[in-house]
Design a protein around this nucleic acid. Structure first.
Length: 612
RNA sequence: GCCCCAGUAGCUCAGUGGAUAGAGCAGCAGCCUUCUAAGCUGUUUGUCGGAGGUUCGAGUCCUCUCUGGGGCGCCA
């Protein structure tokens, strides 16, 4: 809030200077109000004099002095100095900073929306063949928080889970075969599913559908059980979805076959027994095109190399079954063409899927062409030597390039990196001793048990979920990180979750004890003004997170906000019967801090306890 | 071979192209008859892996390179 207000002041001054003929342009570019690293540099700094010196046609120091001079009369400032190479340093009056306390509300702490998009965010989307694992937990925490942040930034968000329940899935078939084997008392097939939960599913199905049920029936029922389990586990983790989309529904409705036909008609797919592969040089440039002849025919190929994918993908296998890529194309078409269509898709995937980005964008590009949504641009009809191996004509090449470009704008794939779990400083196995995969719900329950041994089951899960979410979100999703189980399970001041939650509990306690109405006043103590500055910076933090999807910064912010409060708490006594005015104004400051903490923790999906 | 990620204080990591690179932990020294000590205060710590380049200015952007982790299926 303060930054925005200062940026407006600077922008006005620049525009006035232009009106007066002092500078040749009305804008010197975007105005950034930055933190100062040293207190002697004031409260905030602006680099516009350096960034805009060329446009203004004068040296940064002179421009800075000019801007500072124009701003000098403003009562917001205690002082304005031009320093170093041309920084404009602002020192704000306490009265000015104090005024912002009355402006804080639940809505004013959210950024002013610059654009309002309809965004479909798909995340988690694991196969319905087991519980959500601790690896997927990172995607769940990240995806759900990203959705919250995008919403807070003004976008309309649709949370989506894609259920890979298609008949084409090899893995799901293997899952069903494993269950069938158990029911028949046969050994589980090689690479089959052997965890305890598979036994449980088999036992449930033995009574529900009988031991002699066919493979398709078993598969359908097993999937339903697993999806229900996943939904339940995710719910305990504070994650919910607007849509659980069934892949199989696309096959049943004929959309996949229709899309395959459309692709064939567009020449994007064919059954020539050859696979094209791109040999890429550093930087992703196509070095050469290899045609890899296939021994057997009968395969239907998506020529995804036309869209920059490094090799063509199979749409229909030799045995006639469609692949997941085929349903993916129909799925993306569906996502874009629903009544409440999406302007943009974000897909959150795990580290093992990073090779999938090019494929997915090729999928969307192919869909756009098959759907006739791309205009060909009349351009160069010449084909280079490598182009000639990929495209039939210059027109087709231009169409494919346009489709690829559009697809990259419409689909944003976010990959989260690996999580390593550490216990006592050593890597903890992702599988338990009995061979079962470590499930997210086990992590939640285990941490919850340590945190709240005497709590009710819901309290334990809440505590476990809070800690797990906070930890998952601490680091950038785009970085591998170590999840320190020992630290997460420690009920100590080392645990940053509690540092933040404790600040909220302290505020709640003060507000409970207070017998006076909060009433904003003037704040003169340094811990007070520092706290105000931190509180009103929340909209700026949310906006930045929504822009680059780096939601981990919100965790850093929450810690900084809590720290600013704890400092204030120790330095400035709130409740003082001898001084009613100070008590009231500090209560108001507590209240706005509480709002900021609740908003931040709410976005992170972490609870804000009234007492600890 | 190609792709993604990382390399910053003893450890774990922040770090909007800006000024003298910051936190937490660990270590040491303090603060509870006072609103929750799950808190606060003080103190020590740097070839930002390396080399070029772009820029008025690079930990941040580009190129190359070294080291480590992960990925490149007619599996999803």
């Amino acid at each position: 809030m303060i930054r925005e207000a200062l940026a407006v002041k600077v922008a006005n001054v620049v525009s006035n200077m232009h009106a007066k003929g002092k500078i040749p342009v009305a804008s010197l570019g975007p105005i950034e109000i930055a933190d100062t690293k040293q207190p002697e540099h004031g409260d905030f700094a602006c680099n516009i004099a350096m960034a805009g010196s060329k446009l203004a046609g004068m040296n940064p120091r002179a421009l800075g002095e000019l801007i500072a001079g124009e701003l000098a009369g403003d009562e917001a400032f205690e002082s304005i100095e031009v320093a170093g190479p041309g920084f404009i340093n602002f020192r704000l009056r306490n009265t000015y900073v104090s005024n912002f306390v009355t402006l804080v509300s639940r809505t004013s702490l959210l950024p002013t929306p610059l654009s309002r998009q309809k965004i479909n965010v798909e995340f988690v989307s694991v196969n319905p063949n087991g519980p959500i694992t601790i690896g997927s937990g990172r995607g769940a925490a990240y995806g759900s928080t990203l959705c919250n942040v995008l919403e807070a930034a003004g976008h309309q968000v649709h949370r989506e889970y894609y259920v890979n329940d298609g008949v084409n899935s090899e893995q799901m078939r293997l899952f069903a075969e494993s269950i069938k084997a158990i029911l028949e008392g046969q050994p589980v097939p090689d690479n089959g599913y052997k965890g305890d939960y598979v036994q449980n599913v088999a036992e449930i199905l033995r009574t529900d559908v009988g031991p002699d049920a066919g493979l398709d029936t078993l598969k359908a029922h097993a999937e339903r059980l697993m999806v229900a389990k996943q939904r339940e586990d995710l719910h305990a983790f504070g994650v919910s979805f607007d849509t659980w989309f069934s892949e199989q529904s696309l096959h049943d409705g004929g959309e996949v076959e229709a899309e395959v036909t459309a692709l064939l008609n567009s020449g994007i797919a064919d059954s020539e027994p050859v696979r094209v592969k791109l040999k890429l040089a550093k930087g992703g440039k196509v070095e050469s095109v290899e045609q890899e002849p296939q021994d057997e025919g009968g395969t239907l190929w998506l020529r995804s190399t036309k869209f920059g994918d490094d090799m063509d993908r199979v749409l229909r296998r030799r045995d006639g079954r469609l692949t997941y890529i085929a349903s993916d194309i129909a799925y993306h078409k569906d996502k874009f063409n629903r009544p409440h269509h999406a302007d943009k898709l974000i897909t959150v995937l795990g580290p093992d899927h990073h090779g999938y980005i090019g494929r997915l964008q090729a999928v969307v590009a192919a869909m756009l062409i098959a759907d006739g949504q791309v205009e060909g641009r009349p351009g160069n009809t010449q084909l280079s030597e490598t182009d000639a191996q990929l495209f039939r004509s210059g027109m087709e090449r231009d169409l494919c390039l346009a489709a690829t470009e559009l697809a990259r704008k419409m689909l944003d794939v976010q990959i989260f990196q690996l999580v390593r779990f550490l216990k006592d400083g050593k890597p903890a196995p992702m599988r338990k001793r009995d061979g079962n995969i470590f499930a997210l719900i086990d992590l939640i329950n285990e941490i919850g048990e340590k945190m709240r041994p005497e709590g009710m089951p819901e309290e334990k899960q809440q505590a476990g979920s809070d800690v797990a979410r906070f930890f998952y979100l601490m680091r950038s999703h785009d970085t591998t990180f170590d999840f320190d189980l020992s630290l997460a399970e420690t009920k100590s001041d080392d645990n940053p979750v509690f540092y933040v939650q404790y600040a909220h509990a302290r505020i709640s306690s003060i507000l409970r004890k207070a017998e006076l109405e909060p009433k904003a006043g003037e704040y003169t103590e340094r811990p007070e003004t520092e706290l105000i500055k931190k509180v009103v910076d929340l909209p700026n933090e949310i906006r930045r997170c929504a822009e680059d999807y780096g939601v981990h910064r919100l965790v850093t912010y929450s810690i900084e906000l809590a720290r600013a409060f704890h400092h204030f708490y120790n330095e400035c006594r709130v409740i003082d019967p001898e001084n009613i005015a100070t008590t009231q104004s500090r209560l108001a400051l507590c209240q706005v801090t509480q709002i900021a903490l609740q908003t931040t923790l709410g976005l992170l999906g972490v609870s804000a306890p009234e007492a600890m």
